[in-house]
């Protein structure tokens, strides 16, 4: 793994080894870093835009393949940042109960996308209904209403 720094962020967030050749890992890292930055955990400084797969940074994708042998541990962070990191890790601790539920990658994409739509796309006072409608309009594969509601609550709790 060329970029040990990014790999260490993934490892700390998802409690598993990052494999940059796996698409799901790359997507999960994209969403994880987006949310960490917005939570005020200063691990990186990437800019995100909305692409087909939600908040996405082209530069971050390129960096996943770039050499960087530094690494970061949550202990390097302030108490506040550690707390936010753990909150996010908990939010990402998810496994589907059945086949109809989202897999981890979809869950992570759902949480990050809801937050992005709420913060950057829709009017500031947008209702939950409006946000979730917009989510399913842009991402038909994320149409499980109950899970979307659950993800919305998770976003609110992360950013309260």
């Amino acid at each position: 793994m060329a970029n040990k720094y990014l790999a260490s962020i993934y490892n700390n967030l998802f409690d598993q080894r990052f494999d940059c050749n796996r698409f799901e890992h790359r997507l999960e890292l994209q969403k994880g870093i987006y949310l960490l930055q917005d939570l005020g955990v200063p691990v990186s400084e990437y800019g995100f835009s909305w692409y087909k797969h939600g908040p996405y940074s082209q530069t971050l994708l390129d960096d996943m393949y770039r050499m960087n042998d530094a690494s970061i541990s949550t202990e390097d962070l302030s108490d506040y940042s550690q707390e936010q990191f753990l909150k996010l890790r908990e939010a990402f601790t998810y496994s589907p109960l059945n086949e109809e539920e989202y897999n981890l990658q979809n869950w992570v994409e759902c949480v990050a996308s809801i937050h992005f739509l709420k913060e950057n796309v829709l009017p500031r006072a947008a209702s939950e209904e409006l946000i979730l409608d917009e989510l399913t309009r842009r991402k038909p594969h994320l149409s499980n209403f109950n899970l979307n509601q659950k993800a919305f609550k998770v976003v609110n709790s992360l950013f309260s």
């Binding site: 400084e45 990437y46 800019g47 995100f48 940074s57 390129d62 770039r66 960087n68």
Partner: peptide
């Protein structure tokens, strides 16, 4: 050692927290 003139691909990105 790792110096590269990168091709920028992220434009008009919103300022991050901080």
């Amino acid at each position: 050692d790792g110096f590269t003139i990168k091709v920028e691909k992220d434009f008009m990105v919103k300022a991050n927290k901080g």
